[in-house]
Amino acid sequence: MEKNTICHPVTSPECPVSPSTNYDLNARIVANYAPADGTSQNVVVFYLTYGGSGVSSTILISDHIPTHPPVSRTTGTDGLYTAYFTSSNPGSFNVSAQLRSDPSVSTSETITFTPVVTYPVFLGPNRVSTPPETYFWD
């Protein structure tokens, strides 16, 4: 049975090649466990291939981090797109991407933002200052 998508049996401008069953989308985390300070970044590289070679096309990225809507991005001619994620909320979040023209071509990874410790910390009546192994340079 033939697979019908926006790219097959008719090729639309959104599709560089048809049918889309030969597409493959992968994700690789290159930076993880960033502090949840709203500026530090976790980084995921998405790689879209067709028949084993990188291709340019539009992918829809969802990170499931509160207040972050899904976004459409175009991979480079090499099939790569690097996504940077920030969060003010500690925790683990599923990051997923799908080929815009065929949502069945998809991938996902889990990134984690760590809690930010603000000093001083109070442990009962005891005050803990900046850890002794922390150094600040001018």
Rank of each mutant, 00 (worst) to 15 (best):
T134R: 08
P69D: 12
R73Y: 04
H68P: 06
P66Y: 04
L80W: 11
R127D: 09
N94L: 05
S108N: 11
S108A: 09
E133W: 13
T74K: 09
P131R: 14
F85E: 01
N126D: 13
P132Y: 15
Y135H: 07
D78Y: 11
S108I: 14
Y81P: 07
L80D: 07
T75P: 04
R127C: 15
S101H: 14
G76F: 06
S87H: 02
T82N: 01
I61P: 02
H64C: 00
V95I: 10
S108Y: 10
S72L: 05
N126V: 12
A97V: 03
V128R: 15
T67G: 10
D63M: 00
E109D: 15
T134I: 11
Y135E: 02
E133I: 15
T67F: 11
F113V: 08
G79M: 05
I111M: 09
I59N: 02
P66H: 04
P70F: 12
S88Q: 07
T75Y: 06
E109F: 14
F113K: 09
F136K: 13
S96A: 01
Q98C: 08
I61E: 02
I61Y: 01
F85D: 02
L99S: 01
V95T: 08
V105S: 04
P125H: 08
V116E: 14
Y135K: 08
P120S: 13
A83K: 06
S62K: 01
T112S: 11
P90C: 05
N94W: 03
F136H: 07
S62L: 01
S108E: 11
I59Y: 00
E133K: 13
T107W: 00
P120H: 15
S72R: 09
T67V: 07
A83L: 09
V121G: 13
P125G: 07
T74A: 06
L80R: 12
S72Y: 03
A97G: 04
Y81V: 10
F113C: 09
L80G: 10
E109S: 15
P131L: 12
P120E: 15
R127W: 14
P69W: 09
P69M: 09
S106Y: 02
S104L: 08
T110H: 12
P125E: 11
T110D: 11
P90S: 11
G76D: 03
F93A: 01
I59A: 02
S101K: 12
D78P: 06
A97N: 02
V95N: 03
I59K: 00
S96Y: 01
G91Y: 02
G124M: 05
L99A: 05
S88T: 10
P132Q: 13
P131C: 12
V95C: 07
Y81I: 11
V121Q: 10
S101I: 10
T86R: 01
D63C: 03
V121M: 12
D78E: 07
Q98N: 06
H64N: 04
H64E: 04
R127S: 10
N89L: 00
P69H: 05
S104E: 05
D63R: 04
T130Y: 14
N126F: 15
E109T: 14
S72P: 04
I111F: 05
T67W: 14
